[in-house]
Design a protein around this nucleic acid. Sequence first.
DNA 1: TTGATTATACCGAACGTTCGGTATATACTA
DNA 2: TAGTATATACCGAACGTTCGGTATAATCAA
Lengths: 189, 189
Amino acid sequence: MPLNKVSDQHLLDQLLEVFRVHGYEGASLSLMSEATGLKRASLYHRFPGGKEEMARSILEHADELFASEILAPLNASGDPKARIRSMAKRLDEFYQGGRGSCLLDTLSLGDSNPGLLTGIQASIEAWTDAMAGIAREAGLSSTKARRRAEDSLVQIQGSLVVARITGDPAPFTRTLKALPALLTDPNSH
Amino acid sequence: MPLNKVSDQHLLDQLLEVFRVHGYEGASLSLMSEATGLKRASLYHRFPGGKEEMARSILEHADELFASEILAPLNASGDPKARIRSMAKRLDEFYQGGRGSCLLDTLSLGDSNPGLLTGIQASIEAWTDAMAGIAREAGLSSTKARRRAEDSLVQIQGSLVVARITGDPAPFTRTLKALPALLTDPNSH
DNA sequence: TTGATTATACCGAACGTTCGGTATATACTA
DNA sequence: TAGTATATACCGAACGTTCGGTATAATCAA
């Protein structure tokens, strides 16, 4: 079989970017074509299920990316706080220092497809579980660990929104810095 | 002059709802027509500037609503904490117990109009200022007060996003409950 | 050739927008 | 007071454009 003109990796990466900037409704085939270098019909060859399959695919792609590139340090060995710092560093890269939006946020706008919403919920659940896991490992009770994981998620999402609106990534940077303590210290807050 | 079939109040309220659920790109004229009871052409009679003017108008409308209905208690008299609780209660209503999105969030998605973005920034700035003001009044230093106001905003926006995705409004409710302490206590966090 | 991959051309539907025309309520005139 | 003119409010239909989606043809490695 001939090589793809555009690699799956590049394709998914570019589509991810379009979806996370414009959301599902705003992500037009023209934008995706422009971003990937593939004509609309070629996009339909790669994704016979159309726009919905594209969204589902990039969500899956983002999940794998997230698990392997961002959440991976959490399952390593060593000091939990250090591992969280490592995750924070990778989060900073992934969200372009706070200048990028979260796919789960933008993709969940509007009357989003029920099936897609389920996938989004699963993704955010997995993320929460991962953070709750290391909080638990750091000595917090399981209920407390889960609560702190949810708080972390709230602050990450919120700081991304505020950073996007104001154009100032500082809130996001600050949130990342506070993550290790938030997920491990028994008595803060 | 003939009476309006649909009052300005109802018109703006419904449009606000459409924009805050679907964002700018997702808010179609058909959706707006359906929501307001006015045909598309009639919407153009009320807003000659088209969709952009609609967005600008509802942003202005939301500002006034926010100032008079949500932020008002902050400028009343009495215990700052009680006033913040009052604001939290109204926020809860405005955001439908955490089931509704924030207009400033959804409207700022995509390549949003520069002029519109400026308005969004002004709105969020005013909100932040109001919260920083009462934090200052409660005895915090001006830098600390501002920081706490920003933190509050981050947690409100973040919990709305998380609540929208998961379908569980609990994070938002929890955030509101924590607001009085967050905006007044000198040593928490 | 064959079979997979990309490009061209096109479709119906919906997009934001405009326009001609019709109500309806006010203002003016007689 | 009655009749006419005016201004406002709304709607149906259509504008050109773009939407998501689908055939069909060209391309190209094996």
